[in-house]
Design a binder for these strands. Sequence first.
DNA 1: TAAATATGATAAATCGTTTTAGTAAATTTG
DNA 2: CAAATTTACTAAAACGATTTATCATATTTA
Lengths: 340, 340
Amino acid sequence: MAKKKISIKDIAKTLGISITTVSFILNGKAREKRISEELTKKVQQYIKEVGYTPSHLAQSLRLGKSKVIVFMVEDISNQFFASIARLIEEKAYKNGYKIIYCSTENETAKARELINTFKVRNVDGFIITPTPDLEESVKGLLDEGFGLVLFDRYMPSVDSSYVIVENEKSAFEATQHLIDTGCKNVALITVESEQIQMTDRLKGYQNAMLQNQLTPNIFQVKFHNIAEEEAYNRIFDYFSNNPDFDGVFFATNYLAFEGLEALGNLGMDVPGQVKVVSFDDHYFFKLYKPKITAIEQPLELIAEKLMEAILHQLDEAEMNSEPKQFTLPNKLNARDSSII
Amino acid sequence: MAKKKISIKDIAKTLGISITTVSFILNGKAREKRISEELTKKVQQYIKEVGYTPSHLAQSLRLGKSKVIVFMVEDISNQFFASIARLIEEKAYKNGYKIIYCSTENETAKARELINTFKVRNVDGFIITPTPDLEESVKGLLDEGFGLVLFDRYMPSVDSSYVIVENEKSAFEATQHLIDTGCKNVALITVESEQIQMTDRLKGYQNAMLQNQLTPNIFQVKFHNIAEEEAYNRIFDYFSNNPDFDGVFFATNYLAFEGLEALGNLGMDVPGQVKVVSFDDHYFFKLYKPKITAIEQPLELIAEKLMEAILHQLDEAEMNSEPKQFTLPNKLNARDSSII
DNA sequence: TAAATATGATAAATCGTTTTAGTAAATTTG
DNA sequence: CAAATTTACTAAAACGATTTATCATATTTA
């Protein structure tokens, strides 16, 4: 029966004092504002008694800060993003922030729309995995004073805070790992994308191949939000038409899932005939027979740095400070050591 | 350079009219409130010109509705919950709602705390996977007029809206499926839990066994937020000590992941020697060799009904209406048909 | 002892809306 | 033609907080 929520005004009236006094006490300014110890105690006591909590809405309106951070990723149901969501959650609540999530599907139009939606919703900050061509919107956020941290990928042309991983270095290592275990023709299965996290992985692969005097063998799947099956078919076709490889480096784990399926159906033995490494480790890779070697991103560290960067920006005291830019190291989980 | 946001007051001043008039026009009450066509047009034109959008904070404060729904689940990084999150997202935004998520870890204390946090944060509604002993808090929400829908499990003692699946029926079917394919001793691997979704699955299994004159063979893993490895070890031990089963029904997919690992390490051939069915289908089960039969929950339907139920409650017009209670059918994805 | 300062509290503006209760002027009615 | 009604619009209160400016009264200071 929805007992009406008590307000600061009710408290003032009941105690026969002014709203101002109550507010000062609530905000710990009693001493500073010279409210007597006696009255302060009395008010605090009463507040505890009735279980009063201030209206965040009213505070937000008055102070112009909503204590809301938007977590805008490619797809919140993706294991990687969901895991990060889980990890930043606690840190956010601990600091009095709430997190609203949304998924862009990596579609620029959708991302722009979402940014606009949330801008007018008085959120304080954004954590974003940017879609292609989102520079303008992102710069807009920065200009308008919103907190902003990019992650998973950054935008070379925008000087914002970001948290990414060492894509090129790890891709190099993964490729080198395959070569070290005897591969002469390592194929790279990646997506057709201009986004930096993907081009960096490509670069790492290419450098490793060239440094070992090997010929790159690249297949870029057109991945325009196509269905899993479609990806499977394209990878299957590529493998059938170019069967002379002895190693595969998958640039993302969903490519690996489909690719492993394809290898299996083509009767290619993993890891006997073909060795495999995937970017972006997954619970699945430990369970798969055989276990799959993969590059693990440091989820906890990413989450930690994300919150560090966004809170730093939202902290009044340090407004307009330098952007924080983190490039974090991954870990290659070699699960085929018995093969070497 | 944060150009200050334009307010309704600015518009009124610029056009030399009152705030009231602008507000009426903004809210489509121009006709009703007898604002002349001419002025209405002019104002609308100006609003479009300057790209004004109302402050949701101010509206929320004034109207007492924040257009925020809390999505409170056991663990947002769990594939099932993350998928639901993804699916309700769009429906929410389409209706002008934002979604805040949080994870309870299935800990009652944490759930209570979260509920309190969000109650004072002026959210409108809650979608909750209740932890054990959460009845009081949940009833509190109902009494205080918050929108509420439980899901994944409900509370028999609370007459709230909920969206669940046919746990008992599907568990029965899964067990029957194993029996039909020749199993005489089907083990049930489940968690030690009093929660209804789990006890229902147990019931379904038991009924199927008894109806077939077979002896139930139940192992309840103590699952007090233990690590994956711990669960693995316990299941491994159970299998080693009770090796005379020819089928396993796993009550959740994470139990199946660990259980399959254990079966593999025990050298038990799946599905030759032991046939397996799991509750809660997963991408993984399609990829695993052999493919694993599993019960698929209707994600889209669940999401749809969740939003239907919560929006129904938040709709002013239908306040205090009857709770909506949905029990949805699952689908058994038999992937071992070649074996029959 | 008059002026200056310290003490303890408060009135009122403000944030950006919505909505109730008016109010003048124009029009209709009897 | 005066009264009643309609038209077109507005003043002001309210939502629930924060904060600046102010105000008595008491205490120091000169």
